[in-house]
Design a protein around this nucleic acid. Structure first.
Lengths: 143, 143
DNA sequence: ATCATATACTTGCAAAAAGCAAGTGAAATG
DNA sequence: CATTTCACTTGCTTTTTGCAAGTATATGAT
């Protein structure tokens, strides 16, 4: 299953993120938590890409072990997942990824206004998303 | 092997990068091209993480098919790989990844000065790296 | 109280991908 | 012209993924 600490291949910073996020699913969970206001197992399952239940359960464990997310709720019962500060700190990475895809995927889901808003005022976009993560219910996400 | 165009799971921008970079090796090749002045098959093989030859060959094909890199040289002979403009455009993503790892990996290889230099003057850091990609031989990379 | 339903997982197995070692073919080197 | 080097390919084993089904606990209706 998942080790608490995998043997790491190097301490190159690019490799460091790959050790946690170097697969096709993990970052989608972060996306759901960060941009889509999803915070339950069932919510993650509903996402368009169609993650399977065993993969989801394993990735949630890994993310928790790496300190990216934390789970709230009595064990065995309904859990509510949330990003830790280390997880929220991925926001600039997520926004740059979104901007790159918006530039290079002609069929992107990213709303038309995002790219320009982000280029003009990246800190404003970041602040808005952090505000809504902290319980605000209004404001746009990048997709 | 690798399809020219995989069936894509969604046009979410986060998913879009995962379709190309969602594995443990692909982004290391981009790193080598962007920061380590490596541009040959043999150079990529020497990197610390120890990619195997079949995986490297397949990833090079995929990256070329996705328009991230291009190969120069007569077919069957020694190739020189280079980032396309789409590939170079990943620089902001790579730098944010580097910054996140520098903040959260106590054992990071990232040189001590990088994080502050990047926070103070991100455009300067970007310009320096792009300059060295375009043939300049001096200047620092993030690792 | 009991039955159905929903949620949050776990388990089992087949298929795909990764990892390792060895092999191949063309070009550069001696 | 034999040897070495480089850039891959091939074969095989191990690991991971993907799908379907099952289980445990809670919640809601009769």
């Amino acid at each position: 299953m998942s080790r608490t600490s995998d043997a790491c291949r190097s301490h190159c910073p690019i490799n460091f993120v790959l050790e946690t996020f170097g697969d096709r699913w993990t970052l989608l969970i972060v996306r759901d938590l960060m941009f889509k206001q999803k915070q339950t197992y069932g919510g993650f399952l509903e996402s368009d890409e169609g993650i399977s239940t065993n993969i989801l359960a394993e990735r949630l464990k890994r993310l928790e072990a790496h300190g990216i997310i934390e789970r709230h709720g009595p064990k065995g019962q309904r859990q509510v997942y949330a990003l830790t500060s280390k997880g929220r700190d991925l926001l600039p990475v997520m926004l740059e990824i979104t901007a790159w895809s918006a530039r290079h995927d002609a069929a992107t889901n990213t709303p038309p206004g995002f790219l320009q808003a982000y280029e003009v005022n990246p800190d404003g976009v970041k602040a808005a998303i952090l505000a809504q993560l902290d319980g605000d219910e209004s404001g746009p996400g990048p997709d």
